[in-house]
Design a protein around this nucleic acid. Structure first.
Length: 562
RNA sequence: GCGCUCGUAGCUCAGCUGGAUAGAGCAACGGCCUUCUAAGCCGUAGGUCAUAGGUUCGAGUCCUAUCGGGCGCGCCA
């Protein structure tokens, strides 16, 4: 609907120009807004105010000219008026609104989807947790935001590849292997022989037990058998990583999050990609030796200090394989790459981008793009739960799914914009689940389903593909408001995709549900008036469809009964 | 100290590439179930949009400074 208004304004502009009533050559973009107050119409346009200066006319005068050339768009508009300092307000006719219900029906499960992405490739990397422990609540937020963003990009017409990167080659992994080995040998964390930065969590015991028992780890892309030899550190490392990766996979599956591609950091070494990147950076003259280490001049690319690439002990710092990894993404043809990660890692952005610029292979400056989510604070019993990965004290994603439920957990995580810190109060989420907005939205769907059941008993059912004239009875404020909200779904999805802000969809759903609940309380669906009953059943059929479609993009179920 | 980020109702937060009288949920108060699910609806009350300047027809939104919270500033990832 918004686009149709924009097209009308566009053609009106051109008509006014060719009639020489306007003279602006550099036309500003036509932006159609939605007024805060209903008395200002369904849509508004501020273009007259923007053009007023160039035209040397009063804004209202410009608006008047535009309206004269506007027409009513084949019955689309009931009224057009100039208001305030020079807004043009559009009042869409009830008939035009009612007709949009047929578009919802023909769209079916695809209603809401747009083609803004043009089928272009985009890769989204998210979660990318180290395989050194179970996924915790912070990973959960990353998983929810990343996954929802993928669903949103997919819904707005992008060809999305979901990717998970495993740091399975650094110091933390050696640390993990030593910790498991110690457990295998019966060494406890308070023992003097316990590794300095060892992982103390209970799960390390489980890994050690499984390793000694010569268990096999089966997962989608791996098959690892434990040798059971506590002195074989390499074997322990391989087994521990495989074991923990499987645990993470299971947690993500329970959260309904899946990936298309898993990339292992160790593979970048074995394929020689890391060495190749280092060689190229040296050859391009962006490095220097100092204090026994090799440095990259990241300051040439906006960093506040240079960074060590190769440590004095000969190992590479984490961002070197990261650069190699992103070069590989580029070579795989992803001109658009989005990385979703915690804000505590924001310093990697400058470093990785600097490394990619220094390679000088035509990668744009702002590539890849990033979505950072702020930290999650966990509250339990009115107190903050301190998270220490090494000591093994934290709330896992699995705990949350088990305690709060998948739907509510997902909704809660994406309800806030990624930029804002999130307080996850477990007691509130657990004990007062009825206060969670996800139930408000799901309840709307269940209520509608219940009405259909009652209607069927009385012999009523929603028609298929009705004539627009059959919908002419849908004229109450609540009915039209409901239709307008459904209509806003495609725009909402596009907005979410453009701004990387999934939370807007949760607010959309709350509003849509609110429109339904208001309608429900004020209007009776099933009545003696068969024509009206049928029309209203059709309205609710489309409402339920819209609720389901939007919930699906959030990865949340639409229950038929609650 | 430097960088990133946030600061909006008592609390938790929205505010759509600058737009008209700043919104929602919770908490408070008052109403609505003999008829389709009250996990709901309607109403009342609650604001110096952290502070001070600036940009313009117009600022919660953009710019600068200050204050306050979070994160980062490692030859960890």
């Amino acid at each position: 609907m918004r686009n149709r208004i924009a097209e009308l304004v566009q053609s009106s502009l051109h008509a006014a120009l060719s009639a020489q009533e306007l003279c602006t050559t550099q036309l500003p973009a036509v932006i159609i807004g939605t007024p805060a107050s209903p008395e200002h119409g369904d849509f508004s346009c501020n273009i007259a105010m923007q053009m007023a200066k160039g035209e040397r006319k009063a804004p209202r005068q410009v608006a008047e000219i535009l309206i004269r050339h506007l027409g009513n768009g084949n019955g689309l508009l009931a009224k057009t008026e100039i208001a305030g300092p020079g807004f043009i307000n559009f009042f869409v006719s009830a008939g035009a609104w009612q007709a949009t219900l047929l578009e919802v029906e023909s769209g079916g499960a695809a209603f809401g989807r747009t083609s803004s992405g043009g089928g272009k490739k985009v890769q989204v990397e998210f979660v990318s947790a180290n395989p050194t422990g179970p996924l915790h609540i912070g990973h959960g937020r990353g998983a929810a935001i990343g996954d929802t963003l993928c669903r949103i990009l997919d819904a707005s017409g992008w060809d999305v590849t979901r990717e998970f990167y495993y740091n399975d080659a650094g110091a933390q992994i050696s640390n993990l292997a030593l910790s498991v080995q110690s457990r295998c040998l019966g060494i406890e964390p308070d023992d003097t022989r316990w590794p300095a930065d060892g992982y103390q969590g209970e799960y390390i015991k489980d890994v050690a037990r499984a390793y000694l028992a010569r268990e096999t780890v089966e997962a989608s892309d791996q098959h690892t058998v434990a040798s059971g030899d506590p002195n074989d550190l390499d074997a322990i490392r391989g087994f521990a990583v495989a074991w923990l990766r499987r645990e993470q996979d299971l947690d993500l599956a329970a959260f309904d999050v899946r990936f298309d591609v898993y990339t292992l950091e160790s593979g970048l070494y074995t394929e020689g990609r890391v060495e190749a990147v280092v060689g190229k950076l040296i050859a391009n003259g962006h490095t220097y030796e100092q204090d026994g280490a090799l440095w990259l001049k990241t300051t040439d690319f906006g960093d506040d200090k240079d960074r060590v690439m190769r440590k004095a002990d000969g190992g590479y710092t984490y961002f070197v394989p990261d650069v190699a990894y992103h070069q590989a993404k580029w070579e795989r043809g992803f001109t658009r790459v989005i990385n979703e990660q915690g804000a505590d890692h924001h310093s990697t952005i400058t470093r990785v981008r600097a490394g990619l610029q220094a390679l000088d292979i035509g990668i744009p400056k702002g590539w890849p793009e990033y979505v950072l989510h702020q930290m999650v604070t966990v509250m339990r019993g009115g107190e903050e739960v301190k998270i220490s990965k090494r000591a093994g004290s934290y709330v896992t994603l699995r705990d949350l799914i088990d305690e709060v439920g998948r739907d509510a957990t997902r909704f809660f995580f994406i309800m806030r914009k990624p930029d804002a810190q999130l307080v996850f109060d477990i007691d509130l989420a657990k004990q007062q689940t009825n206060e969670n907005p996800v139930y408000y939205v799901q309840y709307a769907h269940a209520r509608i389903c219940s009405i259909f059941e009652n209607a069927a008993e009385k012999g009523f059912r929603a028609p298929e593909n009705p004539a627009v004239s059959d919908l002419a009875l849908l004229t109450t404020t609540e009915e039209l408001q409901l239709i307008k909200m459904m209509n806003a779904l495609p725009d909402t999805i596009d907005d979410c995709a453009v701004h990387f802000e999934p939370h807007r969809l949760t607010y959309y759903l709350t509003e849509l549900a609110s429109c339904f609940h208001s309608f429900y309380n004020k209007n009776r669906v099933i009545s003696d008036d068969a024509v009206l009953t049928t029309a209203r059943l059709y309205l609710l059929k489309r409402t339920a469809q819209t609720l389901r479609n939007a919930l699906a993009i959030l990865g949340i179920s639409a229950p038929e009964r609650m």
